[in-house]
Amino acid sequence: MTPKAPSEIWSAEVNGEPVETLITSNAILLDVLRDQVGTLGVKRGCDLGTCGCCTVMIDGDARLSCLCLAGQVSGRDIVTVEGLSDGAHLAPIQTCFAEHGGSQCGFCTPGFLISAQALLTKNDSPTDEEISIAIEGNLCRCTGYQQIVDSIRAAAEIHRGEVEPAPPASDPHPNPHPEGPDEPSMPPGHAR
C-alpha cells in the first residue's frame, strides 16, 4: 500500500485565523496542526491520549488533539497555546505559569495552559478540586503539579479582577531615555 496524497480540503479557525489545507481522510488533528498549520506549540507526547501535551481548545473545550480526527472538527474554532496571548501581551495564565514555577522543562506546559484556560474561561473561581479535575488528564513529570495549581489559582485571581496582572514581560521597555522620577532613588548612606 503506497500512502495516498492528501486530497480532502480541511478548513477551520485556528487561533482566530481561518485555515484551509489539504489532508488525508484519516489525518489526526495533532498531525495537521503540527505539520500543516505550523502550530508547533501543540506537543506530541504519547499519541495515546495519556499525557495531555497535545491538548487544544475546540469551541472552548479542552480536547486531546491526538485522539481527534481532523475531519471531525473541520469548521470549528480551535485554540492552541499560540492563541492564548494577543501577541503583545501574555494572557494571565501564561504570566502566572512563569512566575509561580508552573513550567519547568515546559513540554507539558502548552497542554496545561489550555486545560487551565478552558477552566478559567468558564469558571473564574474554581475550587482546588475543580482545578484538579481540569488538569487530571495532563501529566507533568517536573513540577509535581503543586506549583501548577498555584499558577492557576493566581491566574483565577486576575480573572476575577482581584489582582492587577503583572506587567507582561512582552511589553516594550519603558522610555529608554527617561527624565527620571521626581524622587530619585538614592543609594543608602547618601547625605541629604
Binding site: T39, L40, G41, V42, T80, V81, E82, L84, S85, L90, Q94, T95, F97, A98, E99, G101, S103, Q104, C105, G106, T109, P110, L113, A169, S170
Partner: peptide, 14 residues
C-alpha cells in the same frame, strides 16, 4: 521565574 519561561508558556520553545 526561569529566564526561558516566556518561550515555554507561549509555545515557542523548540
Amino acid at each position: 521565574p526561569l529566564v526561558d519561561s516566556n518561550a515555554k508558556v507561549t509555545g515557542q520553545a523548540w
